[in-house]
């Protein structure tokens, strides 16, 4: 494999939470030895539920948080060595909330052109021209260029956020739940737009979502996270066809589509919601796992390669192991 665009090596991140003003701090392990690669023009999906560490991962890859352990390499060079503006040229975010992430007092044109202005790219007329061209590409009507964000719909605001992310020609865009606040018909427009832009600009994406059907639609490869750990990763289609980790199977069973009228399934989940301040011993998923055995509470499974594709999973008794597949 050629050198990846972005490589993260064994990232761990611990937040120190303080109970009360003078209380002692409690560590919250948000990420635990997470590694990943993203190639040029590739979309890597990250799926998991609240508290799984996916947003912390996004912040670290954007350089907004320094990992407690591990490092991030961009084009083979540590992200921490990049001057801030150079890093921002290469990696750009698109966040969930199109209401909170745009300065309400700026016009759409200025918002889109801001990265060019900050990086001192081109003259003012050139920047305006480039902003207008970018607006065309993301499907914003020209008349919206002079508008403020408050005059736009949620979908249009997200188009502004995407145009702003792409205008300076980044190699990687970190999308953190980019369509979660949007209606489905608008979500479809934005997902189509992101795929078009990927094809046109060969930009790679880390695509974070809690919605498995969106990940399945968008991602070439995917990672499933649970309580700060990667429990399964590999090619999206392969994972969907045959999940290896019981948690992946549970997530797949909890995915509801309009064509499946089979009633609400019993996911077989045990116990209560996972707490990142109290991470279980052994396999992190064992207290809720429908297939847990006594050993799962003692031994922490490593993320291991299975079979001959690039799939890896962290389970002592993976679903696709020969002895677990019913004859």
């Amino acid at each position: 494999m050629s050198k990846p665009l972005l490589e993260a090596r064994s990232l761990s991140h611990i937040y120190q939470l303080r109970r009360g003003l003078l209380g002692k701090t409690i560590p919250l392990r948000a990420l635990n030895e997470v590694s990943l690669n993203i190639g040029d023009g590739e979309i890597l999906g990250v799926v998991g539920e609240s508290g799984c560490g996916k947003s912390t991962l996004a912040k670290i890859l954007l350089g907004l948080e320094k990992p407690t352990e591990g490092e991030v390499l961009l084009n083979g060079r540590p992200l921490s060595d990049y001057p801030r503006h150079e890093r921002a040229m290469a990696v750009q975010p698109v966040f969930q909330d199109p209401y909170g992430s745009l300065n309400p007092s700026m016009s759409v044109e200025d918002l889109i052109a801001l990265p060019l202005h900050i990086h001192k790219i081109g003259t003012r007329p050139e920047r305006r021209q480039k902003a207008a061209k970018m607006a065309d590409q993301v499907g914003l009507p020209r008349r919206t260029l002079s508008a403020n964000p408050s005059q736009l719909s949620g979908g249009q605001r997200q188009r502004v956020a995407i145009a702003r992310a792409l205008v300076a020609g980044p190699k990687l865009v970190i999308c953190d739940e980019p369509t979660s606040a949007l209606d489905v018909s608008v979500q479809a427009q934005i997902l189509n737009l992101l795929l078009d832009l990927r094809a046109e600009h060969d930009v790679a994406m880390l695509f974070i979502s809690h919605d498995l059907s969106v990940i399945q639609h968008m991602a070439d490869r995917m990672m499933v996270m649970y309580l700060g750990r990667v429990v399964e990763e590999g090619g999206t289609q392969s994972i969907f066809a045959n999940p290896d980790h019981p948690y992946t199977l549970v997530l797949r069973n909890a995915m509801f589509t309009p064509s499946d009228e089979s009633g609400v399934p019993d996911l077989g989940l045990r116990g209560n919601f996972p707490n990142p301040m109290d991470i279980p011993s052994g396999c992190v998923f064992h207290p809720r796992c429908p297939m847990a055995r006594p050993e799962c509470a003692r031994t922490s499974p490593a993320l291991e390669r299975r079979g001959n594709d690039d799939r890896r999973s962290a389970c002592l008794f993976p679903l696709t192991a020969p002895e677990n597949v019913p004859a």
Binding site: I43, V184, S185, Q187, A188, L191, N192, L195, R198, S213, V214, Q216, H217, M218, A219, D220, T236, Q237, F240, T257, P258, S259
Partner: peptide, 15 residues
């Protein structure tokens, strides 16, 4: 407009 499993999921098919 809802992403569906039948789409093949490689990101090739437009919604």
């Amino acid at each position: 407009s809802v992403p569906r499993p039948q789409d093949g999921g490689t990101g090739s098919k437009r919604l």
